[in-house]
């Protein structure tokens, strides 16, 4: 299948009050048409920054990208000017954010905001745009699209607002949809609905999706491929089934163990295994593996040498000194 997006060796540094802060270290990712890539990691691991880098929305603009390329349908986004980028944002690459309340403008109706997006990117009259807005709302299973179009954001519940956001994002048939923790602020029941909507839209239109989350449970239900990020690095990438069933990196294992489950553990110990400590500050100088200080498998070499990238079949790769366990 064709790759919509391929990020190669991307490194990003932001300059601020504290000097130059390296945010992303040598990231490579690929998204295929009609596939869902999940990016998982704790807060501060660089998930959202990756999304911003793709959209060229990094604070500091293009200067922030130190190295690497982002190729979107054959075009390198890192070389685009701000004006050229506006053609991609919202049209070719759409984005859904975590907080549906702060993303919608409180003083305009939903209809007005949807029409704005449609008319900016497509040559359509106001009437046609309104008709399309209505169709988009129907696609995200809103029962009464006409009423919602005339509503202001405050009149809608969190789940409804997120549906509207998805409808706006999909209204220009983007090739790539980036969803940045779209369900974190929602109830579990609504979360299940939003996951279903994204899945449905992706399969129906062939849109590639990058789904960012900190919850491996959520990602496991939706994604084809999973990339696990930690402190600005990708530590493990592979097919969702492989990564979830046979996690190799200690960080992935630790994340999996911290998701609460229903069934009691086999050893009868019912405490959740938390990951001790926190994601390191990006300014912190760590020689060797960035996860080593929190890793329960850390060896001497982990503190001294940056782990090599091990590449295997089926697009599986691992950033760790530990060897991949041989499957029986």
């Amino acid at each position: 299948m064709e790759n919509i997006l391929s990020i190669k060796n991307l490194s990003v540094s932001l300059s601020g009050k504290r000097g130059i802060v390296p945010i992303l270290h040598n990231i490579s990712l690929e998204v295929e048409q009609g596939h869902i890539l999940g990016i998982v990691g704790e807060s501060g691991s660089g998930k959202s920054m990756t999304a911003f880098a793709i959209n060229q929305l990094l604070p500091g603009g293009r200067k922030s990208i130190v190295d690497g390329s982002i190729s979107f349908c054959g075009e390198d986004l890192t070389e685009k000017t701000e004006k050229e980028m506006t053609k991609f944002r919202g049209k070719e690459i759409a984005m859904i954010f975590q907080e549906p309340m702060t993303c919608l403008n409180p003083v305009f109706t939903i209809g007005r905001q949807m029409k704005d997006v449609i008319m900016t990117h497509q040559k359509k009259s106001s009437k046609e745009a309104e008709k399309q807005a209505e169709e988009m709302l129907e696609k995200v299973h809103i029962r009464n699209p006409n009423r919602v179009l005339s509503c202001y954001p405050y009149e809608l519940s969190g789940g409804m607002r997120q549906r509207v956001m998805i409808a706006i994002a999909l209204s220009c048939s983007p090739k790539l949809l980036i969803a940045d923790e779209p369900t974190t602020a929602l109830d579990v029941t609504i979360q299940a609905q939003i996951i279903f909507l994204i899945k449905e839209a992706c399969k129906a239109t062939g849109t590639g999706v990058i789904f960012i989350s900190h919850d491996l449970g959520v990602v496991s239900q939706l994604c084809d491929t999973i990339a696990v990020m930690y402190s600005g690095q990708i530590v493990e990438v592979g097919r969702a089934a492989d990564v979830l069933a046979h996690p190799q990196h200690p960080y992935t294992k630790a994340l999996l163990a911290s998701v609460p489950s229903f069934t009691p553990r086999e050893d009868g110990n019912d405490t959740l295994s938390a990951i001790p400590g926190m994601v390191p500050d990006p300014l912190e100088v760590i020689t060797g593996c960035r996860f080593a200080p929190r890793c329960s498998y850390a060896m001497d070499i982990c503190h001294k040498k940056v782990p090599p990238l091990q590449i295997f079949a089926d697009g599986y790769s691992l950033h760790c000194h530990l060897q991949k366990e041989v499957e029986n």
Binding site: V188, D215, G217, S220, V259, S261
Partner: peptide
């Protein structure tokens, strides 16, 4: 509730 290893259960799409 999303749980690793549990197949996705299609929710009703009621808004």
């Amino acid at each position: 509730v999303p749980i690793v290893g549990k197949p996705f259960h299609q929710p009703d799409t009621e808004d």
